[in-house]
Amino acid sequence: MPNLRDVRRRIRSVRNIQKTTRAMKFVSASKLKRAQDRVVAARPYANRMLAVLNSLILRVENKEHPLLKRRGSGRILLVVITGDKGLCGAFNSNIVKAGVAFLNEHSQAELALTAIGKKGYDYFKRRPYEMREQYINIMGKLEYGEAKRIADFIIRQYGSEALDEVYVVYNEFKSVIRQRVVVERLLPIGEIAGLGMNGSAQLEYLYEDKPQVIFDHLLPRHVEVQLFRAMLESAASEHGARMTAMDAATTNAKEMIDRLTLNMNRIRQASITKEIIEIVSGANALAE
């Protein structure tokens, strides 16, 4: 039978863990709120850009922009967006799993990786894949400039025909308790037309520049926005996942404390009973 003092110590340590997980849950909840707001705040820009691209695509003669052209899938870059920290349930491992599945599926192609987030980098750096670039510790304070830098680097590689296709794997933010792992093609840009068709798309505009020029300048920006959106979604998902995981951990800690307290009381009672028996039997022995 375990020692009473050991059980007490155990309860205290579980209680401390519970305090930590509860604090982490609240921190994640407030960060989640902010991350969600940013996802929403990024939407108007992306939507207007899509609408303008849609109206432009009808008017440009030359649709053979390199970012739109399919070149087959001989060389593929996979951008893996994970978090920098753990303690968020299956958040990171789901991404890694999806990434591995993708790589296996495309094993006939020449594969390379770019990791955004430490967890994905840690996993893939030890595997036999080429790690092109890694961006660690940027998810915490996500800025558009960062997404732009990464996207520009990818576009440059793509433009010099060192790559044929670029995919991103990330967690899409569904709700606080639900994330969905998605694999999306970043390049070549697929169908833009038809995505955001609305009234203004049909209008006849005046152009300061040739539509072609604006169109060509907008396409790389579109890629940047797509990547930025994926990163924002991933950041929001991470906080959601961590919040859920920490909530579960707090509940588990509570259950454990209850069980240990019961156990402790049993031990205490047993030892009291034992003492009473000892006294009674001692008294009986004297009486005889």
Binding site: L206, Y207, D209, V213
Partner: peptide, 19 residues
């Protein structure tokens, strides 16, 4: 600041796209 110089826009302007 349009690419070709500053653009002033008043209500009722014709539809325009510019960088």
């Amino acid at each position: 600041p349009g690419v070709q110089g500053y653009l002033g826009i008043l209500p009722g302007h014709a539809p325009l796209l510019s960088e």
